[in-house]
């Protein structure tokens, strides 16, 4: 039986926000679900994330945001992906109040994972986003 294709996800912190507890936990959750995580770490720009996603042929991009900057940064990331003609699903994790969820969805964000999202929800969000993008 052929091996299922490995999912490759780029994880990054965009901008100055240095809260990396969540993204490191998510990296391990995904690894332990058999996913390959390309970890870019702190202080990334939309350009550096686009560049890594191209080179790594990422199936999804996950950004962690804890500084209330998501309404600016998530649309900026979507715009950068569009400019580069990259149809890679973007997943936002971190502190996103409920009222902002439809705003981010309208901007094209594939999934939003709030504080305390359990491991299976994190993994499912990635798998579903990747599956939806493939169809």
């Amino acid at each position: 039986m052929p091996e299922e294709h490995k999912i490759r996800v780029v994880l990054a912190k965009l901008g100055l926000d240095g809260h990396d507890r969540g993204i490191k936990v998510v990296a391990r959750i995904l690894r332990d679900a058999g996913i390959e995580v390309i970890y870019l770490g702190l202080r990334q720009t939309t350009e550096s994330i686009v560049s890594a996603a191209e080179q790594e042929d990422a199936d999804a991009i996950g950004l962690s945001m804890h500084n209330a900057g998501h309404l600016v940064l998530a649309p900026a990331m979507m715009a950068a992906l569009d400019d580069a003609d990259l149809d890679i699903p973007l997943i936002i994790g971190g502190i996103v109040p409920d009222v902002d969820v439809p705003v981010l969805q309208a901007a094209g964000v594939a999934a939003i994972l709030g504080p305390g999202a359990p491991a299976d929800e994190v993994v499912a969000a990635v798998r579903n986003a990747v599956a939806a993008a493939a169809t």
Partner: peptide, 10 residues
Amino acid sequence: SGGAILGDRV
């Protein structure tokens, strides 16, 4: 798990 955390870019 067969998964990985690839950190060389960092």
